[in-house]
Structures are given as C-alpha cells and as structure tokens.
C-alpha cells in the first residue's frame, strides 16, 4: 500500500462528491419547482442507478479514455440518486402550512425557496451528501479498472495473487476512510441541521 493510492482514492471521492453536490442539489430543486419535469429527472436518475458501475465506467472509457476523469464522471452519475432524491424529498416534506404562511407574509418565490423551503430541507440534503460520500468510497474501488487508480488496484492485485494480507489492508483502509467521512459529515449534520430541533429543558 502506498500513500499515493490513498490520495488517489480520496481525490476521486472528494472531486466526484463535490461535483455531484453542485449538479445534484440544483437538479433536486428544479425537480421540486417543476414537478412534471421533476418526475422525468427522478426516473432517469433512478435508471442510471440500476446500471452496474463497472458497465458505466466501461462505456465512458470508450469516450474519455482510461483516466481518473472517467472514474470521476462515473461516480458522479452513480451518486446523483441520493443527492437529487434527498434534496427533492426534503423540499417536498416542508409543511404546506409554512409555505402558505411564507406567501401570506409577502415572500416572493425565491425568498420562500431560500429562506423557508431550502433551509428546512437542509438536514435532508446533508443526509444525502453523507450517503454520497460513504458510497463514493466504495464505488471508487472500481476506478482502478478504468485507470483511475486508488485503493481498488490494491484489492485487485490482492485477489489476483490471492494475497490475504493485501486484501485485508486495502479493505481496512477503505473502512477507515468511510468511517472518517461518515463521522465528519455526521458532525456537520448535527451542527447545521439540528439547531432548531433542540429543545431546552
């Protein structure tokens, strides 16, 4: 195991997750604001999820060549589901009474979206992001097949030469990475999402 592999892996995870947040959250908001188009978006996102990651990577490799970009794009496609869905579900779960109250106060559509709906949906969105990061750590393992590098190559090699120690090391590193991201984002969730949920006794 080399630090290079770990860094490659983290690179794939962080870049793909950042991209998927930048694409997925606005897509989820759009799907909420335009329910008809939204149904199509959600169906497409669902469908993408059903294609095996390895197949997506293979197909994309034909277009983009064997490099980490291909891996990153594949991961992004695969992770759209939790982000778009959670954003959409979060927005839809905001009480209609609060939406009406926002209207009654004189908020325009954008003010209502930003100050009421998005703000209240934010804990849901953070949960989606958390799921995305943890999933990305696992999915990025396949990156090695399309030249993305990362810890996948270590696992792959371990399987090829039937080296138990190599497989175990790779797996443990991945687990530590997952737990790290999960904890980090769990902390962020508590910080940002829960302020108004706390009840002082």
């Amino acid at each position: 195991m080399s630090w290079e592999m770990v860094l490659e892996h983290i690179y794939m995870v962080v870049v793909s997750c950042s991209l998927v947040i930048l694409i997925g959250v606005p897509l989820g908001i759009f799907a909420y604001c335009r329910p008809q188009a939204g149904r199509i978006i959600l169906t497409v996102v669902d469908l993408i999820q059903t294609i095996p990651v390895l197949a997506v990577m293979g197909l994309l490799m034909m277009m983009f060549g064997a490099n980490s970009t291909t891996a990153v794009i594949s991961i992004v496609l695969y992770l759209l589901l939790p982000i778009v869905r959670n954003t959409n579900t979060g927005l839809n779960s905001v009480s209609p009474i609060l939406k009406e109250t926002a209207d009654a106060m004189g908020m325009n559509r954008l003010q209502r979206l930003v100050r009421v709906e998005f703000s209240l949906a934010f804990p849901f969105i953070l949960t989606g992001i958390r799921i995305a990061f943890v999933t990305a750590v696992g999915v990025a393992v396949f990156g090695t097949f399309v030249g993305g590098g990362g810890l996948g190559s270590m696992l792959y090699r371990g399987i090829r030469i039937q080296n138990f120690e190599l497989i175990l090391k790779g797996t443990l590193t991945l687990m530590v990475m997952s737990v790290f991201f999960d904890y980090l984002l769990g902390f962020a969730e508590k910080k940002c999402g829960g302020a108004h949920e706390k009840v002082e006794k």
């Binding site: 609060l98 109250t101 926002a102 009654a104 106060m105 209240l120 108004h196």
Partner: peptide, 28 residues
Amino acid sequence: VKLRTSIGYVIQQIGLFPNMTVEENIAV
C-alpha cells in the same frame, strides 16, 4: 407583495418558521 405586507397574518402556532429564531421570525 405590497398587499400582503400590509396585511398581518396569524395562524395556529405551527405558523412560526422552525428554522428561524424568535428575532428572525418577527423580522420576516
């Protein structure tokens, strides 16, 4: 907007925005 800001609106307590503090709610 002018019409609505010139008409106050009160419903059952659920109408306060739970993501905003007391101050922010009053300042809407």
